[in-house]
């Protein structure tokens, strides 16, 4: 299990998170799911920290941008790469996410699960290298 790569998936839609977890599991990636920004920040308080964060923008309570901002402000989490994983395709959102330090902005509906898994794996390999 130690070999299992751990990522944090912040997503309010249960169905989506279940599907993604299932896919990632088949690729031996463990997914920790948080249904809200508040919950995610709580999880991030504990160790070990995830290797990668997938972040939805539209969330109940505090929104994805705020979560992103808080992650980047926190000394212990600021280095964890964040992929924004949303269904909002506006340029303004992409720019904002990138300004706040997100590595990538992915429009969910335009990607297949395979592509998603590929993307996540490529980032995990990047972090694995010292």
């Amino acid at each position: 299990m130690e070999d299992n790569k751990k990522i944090l998936f912040i997503e309010d839609d249960q169905l989506i998170s279940d599907l993604v977890s299932r896919k990632f599991l088949s690729e031996e990636i463990t997914t920790v799911h948080a249904q809200s920004g508040e919950k995610a920040l709580e999880i991030l308080e504990t160790d070990p920290k995830p290797l990668l964060i997938l972040l939805d923008i539209r969330l109940p309570g505090i929104d994805g941008f705020t979560v992103l901002e808080k992650i980047k402000q926190n000394e212990s989490t600021k280095d964890i790469p964040v992929i924004v994983f949303s269904n909002f395709s506006e340029e303004s959102g992409k720019k904002r996410a990138s300004d706040l330090g997100a590595k990538e902005y992915v429009v969910k509906v335009s990607r297949s699960l395979d592509e998603m898994a590929e993307l996540v794996k490529s980032y995990l390999e990047l972090t694995a290298k010292p």
């Binding site: 269904n87 909002f88 699960l113």
Partner: peptide, 20 residues
């Protein structure tokens, strides 16, 4: 249109998983 995307993604990915 935005709201449609989420369940749409879910359906799409369900089909994808089924294919495997």
């Amino acid at each position: 249109a935005h709201q449609l995307r989420t369940p749409l993604s879910a359906i799409k990915w369900t089909f994808e998983l089924l294919e495997t």
